[in-house]
């Protein structure tokens, strides 16, 4: 099941690439880099989340910083 999810994620990422890549002309070099980086990051994160669903994320960091204030306001 997990590998199926990875396969699904890969397919989605491939579809995005197939949709976008031909639209980018040669002089859009920076865009291509941005696209590749973001897409790869997305793929990597998605796969990571498949295997480690409880991976601590930015929400936890924000929780740590702002929760005390939030609690303070609501007490």
């Amino acid at each position: 099941m997990k590998w199926a999810s990875v396969l699904g994620i890969t397919v989605v990422v491939m579809l995005i690439t197939l949709y976008e890549w031909p639209k980018m002309t040669k002089n859009l070099k920076k865009e291509k880099w941005a696209f590749v980086t973001l897409t790869m990051a997305g793929w990597l994160l998605a796969v990571l989340l498949v295997f480690l669903p409880s991976l601590p994320g930015p929400n936890d960091l924000i929780d740590m910083i702002f929760k005390p204030f939030g609690k303070l306001l609501q007490e």
Binding site: A4, L7, G8, V11, M14, L15, L18
Partner: peptide, 16 residues
């Protein structure tokens, strides 16, 4: 090749 890939992946999508 691109077309083949597209067809293949669309077929795969039906799984969902």
């Amino acid at each position: 090749a691109v077309n083949l890939m597209l067809t293949f992946s669309i077929c795969l999508l039906t799984l969902f």
